[in-house]
Design a protein around this nucleic acid. Structure first.
Length: 220
DNA sequence: GACCCGGAAGGGTC
DNA sequence: GGACCCTTCCGGGT
């Protein structure tokens, strides 16, 4: 899904396979999974894992593992990143908050190997990024309870959950967006092959095929 | 006992 | 075959 574009440390991996670090960076930079992982302070490369289980599931899906990935196993890699590779550090006192330690990444520049993903979108097209963008602000202000994710983890619970502010009657645009995100995740889980496509293509297929699942295209 | 940590071995990919 | 990046298991410490 997210091929490495460049990395001086592992040049042989360039454009070939996704490492866990680049996977995390792509998730963060794309902003498409702010309900799972999000920036706390992007300028300091400080990020927060909102839904550890969902993140592990995403990573497992990324690697197409038959055995389900767990956060515990993924965290084992994090420990190596922190202590052996020194590519990230844990924020003291916060189990789910980390910071990337890239020597050349103090300022976020396009030259940084893992920062080649496009910056947050400026043009507001109808993409899963923009759907989630309406939900992104919550991430910045969540408490220290990562499990308090605003979205249900289980795809089977789609559609029945609200954003926390109980709103009787018709769903708000934010709630619709959340429902679409859930449906998108379920859809992608059903068609893992689509994960090989760029995110915009995944979304195209989602609204092309996923209409039957109740996806609601409400641009603007 | 739960949680965190790190060592070690092994698998997959190039 | 070797290097790299995990993945998995397990034992030790708190």
């Amino acid at each position: 899904m997210f091929p490495i574009t460049n990395t001086p440390k592992f040049p042989h991996l360039r454009g070939q396979k996704t490492t866990l670090l680049s996977f995390l960076r792509k998730l963060l930079d794309s902003g498409t999974h702010d309900n799972i992982i999000c920036w706390v302070d992007q300028s300091r490369l400080h990020f927060k894992i909102v839904d550890s289980d969902a993140l592990a599931q995403l990573w497992g899906a990324q690697k197409s593992r038959s055995v389900p990935m767990t956060y515990e196993k993924m965290e084992r890699s994090f420990r190596d990143f922190r202590h052996k590779d020194r590519t990230m550090e844990q924020i003291r006192g916060s189990k789910y908050e980390y910071r990337f330690l890239e020597p050349s990444s103090a300022p976020v520049t396009p030259h940084s190997p893992l920062l080649l993903a496009p910056p947050p979108t400026i043009t507001r097209q109808f993409t899963i990024e923009n759907i989630l963008a309406t939900d992104a602000s919550r991430c910045r202000f969540t408490s220290n309870s990562p499990r308090g994710s605003s979205l249900p983890n289980s795809p089977t619970s789609s559609g029945s959950s609200s954003s926390g502010s109980s709103m009787p009657g018709s769903p708000t645009p934010v709630q619709l967006a959340q429902q679409n995100v859930i449906r998108f995740r379920v859809f992608i889980a059903q068609f893992p092959i689509l994960q090989l496509l760029p995110i915009n293509e995944q979304i195209n297929w989602f609204f092309r095929i996923g209409q039957g699942a109740g996806a609601q295209n409400y641009s603007s």
